[in-house]
Design a protein around this nucleic acid. Structure first.
Lengths: 148, 148
DNA sequence: CCTCATAATGAAAATGATTTTCATTATGGT
DNA sequence: ACCATAATGAAAATCATTTTCATTATGAGG
């Protein structure tokens, strides 16, 4: 298991390798995403980030998220209202599970969808590029609270 | 196979049964959704609808979509940019397939996700309420065009 | 058919997320 | 240390969606 700081270092190094400059804003944003256990919205990153680096601008948050997404370091979570949250990318056949009550986002080890994808390609003639599989429900805490 | 007009009639009747009034705006919107082969955006419904009924307002489109969604007559399609399109609801384990090039939306007969859902409930303690499974790719026409 | 409570409507304004513009600043190769 | 230019932040623009509110039209009851 890697520590957060070493992951932060690797992300920064990867940005550098790809020709991007290392800036205070980017380091702040990367640290937040690396250490967060749940998916963050741009505004949350902006607010948390300014505690660390007050000059941080919201636009920079959006631009940095775009870069990190391009590099495959983070993934977007599509919320039902259409806005987005961001989470460290995971490897393997992981999918998203969102609590509709508290907003908590978790990953679960999901099915390998390649068989399904292949079948859909064969039957529809589409060339599949990407998929979304997200489950929505109540997390254990919200489930027990709603039972009261 | 039902004709479009009889489906339109049924949807209107269902609105009525649920205590909603039958209005020209609603009939126009229902007709469009019943007869469309692809998912429509609110603006598209607004523009198409005004050809039939020029007084139609965009807000009414949004409100009617909300009603039809509540009644389970239509389903929302979540686009990558976060906005929504709407499509007649389908029965069974149908899922969405979107062309990333031309925007065409199709349904495919997908897996029954109840086994996966059950497993996720067991392992995470979540109470699953809903799921999104959408595939993205190039439709046959766009695939052949991009090969030129 | 007429009346009337109120559901439904449309226009305009508000909201909120995201993007664009642009002048200024700061990184990193030389 | 210099400098081209990548990156930044502020402000304005955009775009989908929602709210507000005064007006209109549906449909139940007489």
């Amino acid at each position: 298991m890697k520590t957060d700081s070493s992951t932060t270092y690797e992300w920064i190094k990867q940005l550098q390798t790809c020709g991007y400059r290392v800036t205070a804003a980017r380091q702040t944003i990367v640290e937040l995403l690396v250490s967060s256990t749940h998916a963050l919205s741009p505004i949350e990153i902006y607010d948390l980030g300014r505690k660390e680096y007050p000059a941080l601008g919201l636009v920079t948050v959006y631009r940095t998220l775009e870069r990190l997404d391009e590099l495959g370091l983070i993934q977007r979570v599509h919320m039902p209202d259409g806005c987005h949250r961001y989470l460290r990318a995971t490897q393997g056949h992981q999918h998203l599970l969102l609590c509709t009550c508290c907003g908590q986002v978790e990953m679960f080890e999901g099915d390998d969808l390649s068989k399904l994808t292949q079948r859909v390609e064969d039957t529809t003639g589409y060339h599949i590029q990407d998929h979304w599989l997200q489950l929505f429900g109540l997390c254990p805490r919200c489930t027990s609270q709603s039972r009261q």
